[in-house]
Write a protein that binds this DNA or RNA. Structure first.
Lengths: 145, 145
DNA sequence: AATTTGACTTAGAACTATTCTAATTCATCT
DNA sequence: AGATGAATTAGAATAGTTCTAAGTCAAATT
């Protein structure tokens, strides 16, 4: 899939507008890249994929667009160890699994309320507004992708 | 406290020996720095603190020592967002709280079994050998340090 | 006790992901 | 059409960390 659907386009426009920013072809294309292949690409990977759809785009713009998308709340950054930042358009609360063999990062859905429940371990003085849960390990063999 | 106690020295020697490495004055001093002030210092901070006890030490050696301690299992790295890596000699399973105001990182003790239990959300093909739980937010006012 | 060996330390260069800068382009508003 | 300001761009700069190559040191061997 090459272009952003009408629905996604409106999601983007609304979210950007809400944070006082404008939809642009570059932002739409980058957003489309993230929606099309949800494998937590790095900025480099987003750049490569975006360039194949819009050859004139620059790395700086990719970083700018990603930052814009993050600030508008449409995309989340995923940082694991000291590896390059990855980008994730999955807005539902979820955990991540980081495969030591391939370096790949997988979304792990969690039952509703699970992430919020975790804050129960926090002593009262800590007011958490975000919870991050990352597993690291291996995929059992016989699994693909 | 300036020097490593006999007990800690033996812990260090044993752990290093176990991974085929040697205890050295630099490694002992860096380890002592981490044990003395458990505030998740960055390499820069460890360097500054170590230098005040052993002025001739170099940044490269601090990185080397930290890496040695990590590889021997005595110290854990704590990575939050893209901030500099922090170092933590707390080996018990625990979570972290990252204060958005100060950037400080706090250990959050969790009930025995809690971290392990989290792996229940993982589909079978994911074999986790480590679980990382990080909260981000603010400290309610009226609390110190 | 001198020599060898190999691990450890060190200074500085190199690397990499990301951010910054300053110039240009572009769309919108008068 | 001209002005305004946001967005894009190339390349320079930055920062944390790792690498390199030379020097040091302690233990093992002669």
């Amino acid at each position: 899939m090459k272009l952003l659907g009408q629905e996604d386009k409106e999601t983007l426009a609304t979210a950007l507008d809400h944070s006082g920013q404008r939809p642009t072809p570059q932002r739409e294309t980058v957003f489309g890249v993230l929606l099309d292949q949800r494998d937590h690409p790095t900025a480099d990977e987003v750049y490569a994929r975006t360039k194949s759809r819009m050859p004139s785009i620059s790395m700086a713009t990719v970083y700018n667009c990603l930052e814009t998308l993050v600030s508008s709340g449409l995309v989340k950054q995923v940082n694991i160890e000291r590896e390059p930042t990855r980008y994730c358009p999955n807005l539902a609360p979820h955990a991540h699994f980081h495969c030591r063999d391939t370096g790949r990062v997988y979304d792990v859905p969690v039952p509703v309320g699970t992430m919020e429940k975790l804050t129960d371990v926090l002593p009262g003085k800590y007011q958490a507004d975000s919870v991050e849960l990352v597993f690291r390990g291996h995929l059992s063999k016989g699994t693909s992708s």
